[in-house]
Amino acid sequence: MIKGISEAGVHEVNLVVNDEHRQLHLPPWVTLLDALRNHLGLTGTKKGCDHGQCGACTVICDDERILSCLTLATMKDGSNITTIEGIGSEDELHPLQSAFIEHDAFQCGYCTPGQICSGVAMLAAGRGDTREEIQDLMSGNLCRCGANTNIIDAIIAVKNQSK
């Protein structure tokens, strides 16, 4: 075992987060999730389990949705990250954000950023041809309030808009 935290060293991590270059100096054990929340103040990305079992920490990394809790920040040096804060703003909501509000696709709101990031990336990848496929491809995002049907309805509404 290495002796102490200092022996693990500090790495320079350059990320483009929501179109903005961010440089961090982090020990390797900082996850991308904790880097976003604790070091960049981007708390829109949620910690629901920290073990890859809920999807609340979903972000879009180089066009693909990933779990930021199972990713070390250093692994993503040089990557492009989109978090919920970069999907849309209150003045300029992404269509899926608007659809979530319209379909009341959330209650407590805690899984919502992950659901939206996940849905946006799925739609952008052109996946999910049927409701059943969308349900399956969105199953990596748990919702304990039980907004499941509203979430899928919101995604399908946006999918149909863009057709």
Partner: peptide, 25 residues
Amino acid sequence: LGGGTNLIDLWKYGITHPDKMVDLN
């Protein structure tokens, strides 16, 4: 260290105690 989806989870639980991760990505 590949995708990390299992290794990082096991590390967080204290099931594996890696001293050094060599990132293959």
